[in-house]
Simulated scan of single mutants.
Amino acid sequence: MGIKLIKISVVYFAIGVLLGMYMSMAHDYALKGVHVHINLLGWASFALSGIIYHIFPRTGRHGLAKWHFWTGNIGLPVMMIGLAALILTGAGQLAIAVSIGATLVVISVILFAINILMNLQTAPTKG
Rank of each mutant, 00 (worst) to 15 (best):
I52K: 03
L86N: 15
N39R: 02
H54P: 02
S108L: 03
S99M: 14
W67Y: 14
M118R: 14
G90D: 07
A102G: 15
I15N: 01
I38P: 01
G75A: 10
G60I: 05
G101F: 02
A95T: 03
F69G: 06
L88A: 10
A14E: 00
A30S: 15
V105N: 11
T89F: 08
W67Q: 09
Y22S: 00
M23A: 03
M23Y: 04
T59N: 09
V78R: 13
V109I: 15
A113I: 14
I8R: 01
R58C: 05
L86M: 10
G127L: 11
M79D: 12
W43S: 00
T89N: 07
F56Y: 13
L111M: 09
S108F: 07
I96N: 09
L117F: 12
G82I: 08
Q93V: 09
M1D: 02
Y12L: 00
T89A: 05
N39M: 05
L88D: 10
G63N: 14
A95F: 12
A97V: 03
F13S: 01
L18E: 01
G42M: 06
S24P: 03
L104V: 08
G63W: 13
I55V: 08
P124I: 07
I107W: 03
G72L: 08
G90S: 11
N39K: 01
M118G: 00
G90E: 10
A123L: 08
L111G: 05
G16E: 05
P77L: 14
D28I: 10
P124A: 11
R58W: 12
A95C: 06
G92V: 03
L19K: 02
I87A: 10
Q121S: 15
A47E: 00
M79V: 12
L104I: 02
P77Q: 14
T89Q: 08
A26I: 07
S24V: 09
A95Q: 11
P77T: 15
M25W: 03
L48C: 07
I52F: 09
T71F: 09
M80E: 12
Y12Q: 01
G72D: 10
F56W: 08
V17T: 01
A47M: 05
W43T: 05
A26S: 05
G127A: 14
N115E: 09
I52V: 14
Y53V: 01
R61W: 06
V78L: 13
Q121A: 13
L19R: 02
Q93W: 15
I110H: 04
I107L: 06
W70Y: 15
T125Q: 12
I38T: 13
P57N: 11
L64P: 00
I52T: 12
G33H: 06
